[in-house]
């Protein structure tokens, strides 16, 4: 940690000073908030007594769209993340290709899905296709980076051994790297499906399809019981995915 006590105190004072300034920048409108509390209570009530029926057909369309978007974006994203991830692994890649792949990954990871979705909706029109492209773009960056890290962290001895047998580059990768990283990487893939589903609930807000649009409408119309139903379904599906992927991961090892 920070070594000298004087530095520690200075940092602490600076941090407290910052907190003071930051707090003062929030302009709290107390009457508005008190007003909001009753609405907040109505939301809690809606969450505890969710209404699945009155907007069921919208919810159904939205959930199916979110799920299909997540499935396709995850699969296509995996496909593209493999070459990108291999290129971004310093131990098997070459310099120019390494920098190219790392650059792409940085761009993909620094851009919020929402911002990407805004642009893609402008280009491809409203609907699930723009959402699919958004999620695919984000998936490539995420999985590419983690795949590169898995490859960089492998046990190097088998790689050296295969190099010594005169195996080609592809054979080295297929025989020494693939078996080492497969269980963990498949776990990452499943996990990314999870994230994609959660994100698909958000990008609908800017018109990129999925359950987000339905949720947005419900909240704007103050239909908190329908909103509660949608949120509960999202939580349930995410929980289900986590449970299943945990099970699959155990089975793979």
């Amino acid at each position: 940690m920070v070594s000298s006590p004087m530095w520690r105190w200075t940092l602490l004072v600076l941090f407290l000073l910052y907190l003071g300034v930051a707090f003062s920048s929030i302009d709290l409108n107390f009457p508005r908030m008190l007003d909001g509390l009753t609405r907040g209570w109505r939301f809690v009530d809606g969450f505890l007594n969710p209404n699945f029926t009155s907007r069921w057909s919208d919810i159904q369309t939205g959930i199916i769209e979110s799920l299909t978007m997540s499935v396709t974006a995850t699969l296509v994203g995996i496909l593209f993340s493999i070459p990108i991830g291999m290129g971004a692994a310093s131990n098997i890649s070459t310099k120019p290709f390494y920098f190219l792949c790392r650059f792409f990954i940085t761009i993909s990871r620094s851009m919020q899905e929402i911002i990407v979705a805004i642009f893609l909706v402008a280009l491809f029109g409203f609907g699930a296709f723009a959402g699919f492209l958004t999620l695919t773009f984000a998936t490539i960056g995420f999985l590419g980076k983690l795949l590169a890290e898995e490859i960089e962290n492998i046990d190097k001895a088998p790689l050296e051994a295969l190099k010594a047998t005169g195996a080609s580059w592809l054979q080295m990768i297929h025989y020494s790297i693939v078996p080492q990283i497969t269980p963990r990487v498949v776990g990452l893939w499943l996990y990314r499906f999870d994230i994609n589903f959660r994100e698909s609930a958000v990008i609908g807000i800017v018109g990129a399809g999925g359950i987000g649009a339905t949720l947005n409408t419900a909240i704007e119309r103050y239909e908190y019981d329908s909103a509660g139903a949608i949120l509960l379904m999202i939580i349930f599906i995410v929980f289900l995915c986590e449970y299943t992927s945990g099970y699959v991961r155990k089975w793979l090892i």
């Binding site: 088998p158 051994a161 010594a164 195996a167 080492q180």
Partner: peptide, 19 residues
């Protein structure tokens, strides 16, 4: 690569692919 085929190598930590 063709010549490496003719040179067998054995390692301290075996260097097998465990899986």
């Amino acid at each position: 690569r063709k010549q490496r085929r003719r040179i067998g190598m054995i390692f301290q930590e075996y260097a097998l692919v465990e899986r």
